[in-house]
Each structure stands twice: as C-alpha cells, then as structure tokens.
Simulated scan of single mutants.
Amino acid sequence: MLFKRYGGASAEVLQMEYEDFLELLEYAMKQSTEEWIKERWVNGYQNTSLDEFKEAIGYRNNGIIEEKSINDILGDLAKQF
C-alpha cells in the first residue's frame, strides 16, 4: 500500500525506523480508507451528510493499528507461516 501511494520513495521507506514506518503505514491506511468511504458516499449516498454516512457504516477514525507486543506479533506470524 505504501509503495502504491508513495512509489517513488520506496528506498526511503525501506530505510525508515520501524516506529516511523508504522506511523507512515497507519497514515496511508487511514487516507486510503477515507478515500474509499468518500467514493462510496459520492456513488449514491449524498442524501445524508458524509459524517452521517460514516456513522451509519460504523467507521471509527480512532486508529487502525492496534497495540501489540513484539512477542505477540512474532507469535501471530509464526502461526501463519
């Protein structure tokens, strides 16, 4: 997703500290979700406000990435692979 949005800066993204990378990833995911919601709203739901539409579909803008410990993340990855 980051390379799709920021394709020209892929080398810089790969060299980032992981905290900065996660922050940028969360920002990109939030922006992508906002764009998708606006497109969906424009395609037939303009009889309500954008905020009412977001509330109706249950969208919450309170962060996308949940906090997990590194051990929990590594454990989840080990289960998948």
Rank of each mutant, 00 (worst) to 15 (best):
N43V: 13
E35L: 09
D76Y: 13
L24E: 00
L74G: 01
K54N: 03
K4Q: 15
E67G: 04
R5Q: 10
A28Y: 04
N43S: 15
D20V: 06
G8S: 08
M16V: 03
D72Y: 08
S69I: 04
I70A: 06
E34V: 15
W41F: 09
W36A: 08
I70C: 00
L50N: 08
K68V: 09
L24P: 02
E19P: 04
F21P: 09
G58P: 07
Y27F: 14
Q80K: 12
Y18F: 15
E23G: 13
E17T: 15
F53L: 06
Y27V: 15
R60D: 10
I73R: 00
A9R: 10
E17Q: 12
L50A: 00
Y6D: 03
V13G: 01
V42F: 07
F81N: 15
Y45N: 01
I57C: 05
K38W: 04
L77C: 14
Y27C: 15
G58Y: 05
G63M: 01
E55I: 12
E26Q: 03
Y45Q: 04
R5E: 13
D20W: 05
L74S: 01
Y18P: 14
A78S: 06
W36H: 15
Y59F: 08
E12Q: 03
N71Y: 10
L2N: 03
A78K: 06
L25D: 09
E55W: 10
M16E: 07
A9S: 12
R5N: 11
D76L: 06
L2A: 07
L22C: 06
E67H: 14
E52T: 05
K68R: 12
N61W: 09
A28I: 03
W36G: 14
A78E: 14
Q80I: 10
G44K: 06
D76H: 12
E39H: 05
A11K: 14
G58R: 00
Y18E: 15
Y27D: 14
D20Q: 14
Y6A: 00
G75H: 08
I57P: 09
E19Q: 07
K38E: 14
Y18I: 13
Q15C: 05
E23S: 14
E67N: 11
Q46F: 05
E35A: 04
Y18N: 11
V42E: 13
